[in-house]
């Protein structure tokens, strides 16, 4: 289980708190939605959970173990802008092989053409690049996936395609997913459970009608 207990965060002692006393948990194989108005530190919270930032107070753990500092992190974050998440001077196949190389049928499931592999990132469109960024994280070492507005820049069809492939994979491999988004219909469609940071306590709303 991925847990964040009593998370507080600020960038420096004299600056205001960005995250205050947040506690949340994601079970393996579960899809959890995270909603909050702008300025609630959703992205910061996502970065804390994926180990990009260290909490000022509190702790993040996977199965009661703290996140590794040096090895492959079992919690992977997918950013909103794929353009910034890939090295512009690398070719696509090099980008895909940076973590644990994904399997061929994974690439097919995400609709990644073999012709893209020899290109540079600026030669692919945003939707194509986001598939690459996702494929990079879908391997046996990833236990939890945090999607920070992962499909906010994509058209409806591509969004549905990508989520279908991701949820197929995470269901089959018991990977927990945290969906951070503004898009209420999308979150409702995808998630087993929705956390609303704006509400005082983390009340968990169970939503029925989850996509197959």
């Amino acid at each position: 289980m991925l847990t964040g207990e009593g998370l507080w965060f600020r960038y420096a002692p004299q600056l205001p708190w960005v995250i205050q006393a947040q506690t949340l948990a994601v079970e393996p194989g579960e899809v959890v939605g995270l909603m909050a108005p702008s300025g609630f530190g959703k992205t910061t919270l996502a970065k804390l959970l994926a180990g990009y930032l260290a909490p000022t107070k509190g702790r993040v753990s996977v199965d009661s173990q703290p996140l590794p500092r040096r090895r492959y992190c079992p919690v992977q974050l997918v950013f909103q802008n794929p353009e910034l998440a890939v090295n512009p001077r690398w070719r696509i196949d090099q980008i895909l092989r940076e973590g644990h190389p994904p399997q061929m049928h994974q690439l097919d499931a995400l609709g990644i053409h073999s012709g893209w592999l020899t290109r540079y990132p600026h030669e692919l469109s945003g939707g194509e690049l986001q598939r690459i960024a996702i494929a990079r994280t879908l391997n046996s070492q990833t236990r939890y996936l945090i999607a920070d507005e992962m499909t906010a820049m994509l058209d409806a069809n591509t969004q549905a395609l990508i989520w279908q492939a991701v949820l197929d994979y995470t269901r089959a491999h018991q990977i927990g997913v945290l969906v951070v988004s503004h898009d209420w219909p999308l979150v409702r469609r995808l998630c087993d459970r929705i956390l609303d940071l704006a509400a005082d306590q983390d009340h968990c709303t169970l939503v029925s009608g989850v996509a197959e």
């Binding site: 994926a50 990009y52 940076e98």
Partner: peptide, 14 residues
């Protein structure tokens, strides 16, 4: 400070 270098660390690169 770029996202992709941060990500590289999280992918377990030294």
């Amino acid at each position: 400070s770029s996202d992709y270098v941060q990500l590289s660390h999280r992918l377990g690169r030294s």
